[in-house]
Each structure stands twice: as structure tokens, then as C-alpha cells.
Design a protein around this nucleic acid. Structure first.
Lengths: 157, 157
DNA sequence: ACCCATTGCTTGACATGTCAACTACTCACA
DNA sequence: TGTGAGTAGTTGACATGTCAAGCAATGGGT
């Protein structure tokens, strides 16, 4: 048992007991999961997944320039090997086109297609709504705070 | 477009501009992902996954009583069908034992084994360390704050 | 006692995360 | 110019999330 045990009931005060480390991290994980589910729901009508959507957004950001495969992977939330298969499917759906690099033939340049762009256009609004809803009840100051606190959790160590 | 649009550029002030909704949600997702990776790293030595660990913890919480399959699933972070296969593997590893319910034969009662308990014992410390490290740089008040803000994001619609 | 909606799981199919091993290329250097 | 280290991707194998369909046991109503 930890030493904090001896503080007992908390001197009646206005502030609740500080949450345990485990409670904080759990809350982060649960919240992210909830957000993931809401995003997935918003994407469902177009039958694409959250990762596919992310890839398309990244490629739209570079449009009309292409990006090499691993550069796309790096801009996601990490992870490399999966990116190939992700792009495989997007290419089958003709939302993305890939061409072997000319200068450096190790590269595979990926570019979003017209179809990909218009599909994204359909999704922007629903996704923005999910995001707006998520933070609707937070004041600007609370939003800054939340981002700052999460940054601390993520960066240190 | 929302009414907040008219506030324009933010009157130069000391506070940074409020992050956009999309930036807030992205931060939550990124942070959760980072945490997931740290947890996975802590579990790697015992070769179990984060979901398997969660199941074992839930079952330890009920020990020595068993829990029906879907009750375990419900206590995770949602999701049902996956729980069966998860338990299949844990049973193969002999970390969990399942028996058909006697009263209600639709139920499958799951109980953690001795082996499961001692494996968990090995992991408690490393996992606690991950959690402690994650919040180490947060003051008690900041921890409360973070949990509160995440709660707002999660609960409101 | 019989029927059916409900409940508790299980399965199949597909997308993704993740690790490890492998191929194709490029580059600097001997 | 040949070679080896490093880079960019791909592929195979396995665990999980997720949806939809299917099965067996229950329980209430007739």
C-alpha cells in the first residue's frame, strides 16, 4: 500500500483527491476510444476507415504533389509496415495512385486522385462536426489547458 | 460556420489562440496512442498484449469468483465479439479457465488461474511505472483538471 | 406443454497494428 | 568498378476491432 494511504479522507476540502496515475491514463485511453468510435461512425456512410481517411487527408495536404509511401506513414500516428496494405486498398478503390519514383527508384510516390478528393470533400463536414461536438462544452481556456496537459503526458519520458 | 467566427484574430493577448477542435481531438488520440505503446512495451517481456492484460486484470478483480464472458467484455473499453477469441488464447495459455454455467447454461464463466495471477503479479510493477511516469510531470491539481476535461469531452454527446 | 423474442456467445470476413525477414536501390568508399 | 551499409517498401504471420449472421438456452405468455 502506498504512503498516500495515510492522508485518509481528504481534509473536507473543495478539491477532490488527486486521481491516481492509473486513473489518469485510463481516462485518456477511454476518451480516445470514444472519439475513435465517433469518427468511425461519421466515416461509415462512405465506407472508409479512419486510417484510410487519415491517409487521404495527408495526401490532400500535399496535393498536387505526391508523397513517398513512408513519408505518408510517418505523418500518421506512427507505424510503417501497415501503410503498404492501406495504400493497396486505397489504390484498388482508385482513391490514390502510386508510381515508382523516377529519380530514386526505391521510392513509391503516392498521390490522391480526383475521386479521393471529392470523397474527402463529402467527409469534411461530418468530421468537423464530430470534432466540434467533442470540444463544444470546453471553454477556449479549457481547450488550451487540455492540449497543454496532454502534451506534458506525451512528451516527458 | 459557427458564430465564433466573428471573433477574428484574437486580440494579441498573453494567451495563445484557442486550439481548433480538430487539434484538441488529435492531441487526445496521439497521446492515447503513445500511452498504448508504452504499455505494450512494458508487457512485451511476458509476451502478452494489452487487451489480454486488461482481461486478466478484470478477472483478478473478481477472483475467486468467475465472470461471464460478456461481463468481461463489458468491463473492457467496449466491444463484444472479440472477447471470445481473446479468452480462447488466454485459455490456451492456461491463464484463464472457462466453464459452462450451471444455473444458466448460456453463460460461460471465466476465472483467472493461479498462473494468470502470478503472471499479473510480475506485470503490476512495470505497468504502474508507466502510469506514474506518464503523470509524473503533472501536479495533483493538473491531474484533476485533465481527468475533468477528458470527462467533458467524453460525456457530452 | 409449446412458441417465440431475448440473451449470451461464437464464427466468418475484412481492416489494421506490429514484428521480423526479405528485396530492390542508392551511395560512399576502397 | 565492386562492395557493403543504409534506405524504401513489401510480405508473412499473428492479435485485435468490428460488423453481421448463426446457434443454443431461457423465460414469459398462451
Amino acid at each position: 500500500m502506498s504512503t498516500s494511504e495515510r492522508r485518509g479522507k481528504q481534509r473536507g476540502g473543495s478539491a477532490a483527491a488527486a486521481p491516481k496515475p492509473h486513473e489518469v491514463t485510463t481516462e485518456v485511453l477511454r476518451t480516445a476510444d470514444e472519439l475513435r468510435r465517433r469518427v468511425a461512425a461519421a466515416l461509415a456512410p462512405q465506407a472508409i476507415t479512419s486510417q484510410q481517411y487519415n491517409v487521404l487527408r495527408i495526401l490532400r495536404g500535399a496535393y498536387p504533389d505526391p508523397l513517398p509511401t513512408l513519408e505518408v506513414g510517418a505523418r500518421m500516428i506512427e507505424k510503417t509496415p501497415g501503410i503498404t496494405r492501406l495504400l493497396d486498398r486505397l489504390e484498388e478503390l482508385e482513391l490514390v495512385k502510386r508510381v515508382r519514383g523516377v529519380e530514386d527508384r526505391r521510392l513509391v510516390e503516392c498521390r490522391i486522385t480526383e475521386g479521393g478528393l471529392s470523397l474527402l470533400a463529402e467527409l469534411d463536414e461530418p468530421i468537423n462536426e464530430v470534432n466540434r461536438d467533442a470540444v463544444r462544452a470546453l471553454t477556449p481556456s479549457e481547450r488550451r489547458s487540455l492540449v497543454r496537459l496532454l502534451g506534458i503526458v506525451r512528451n516527458l519520458k
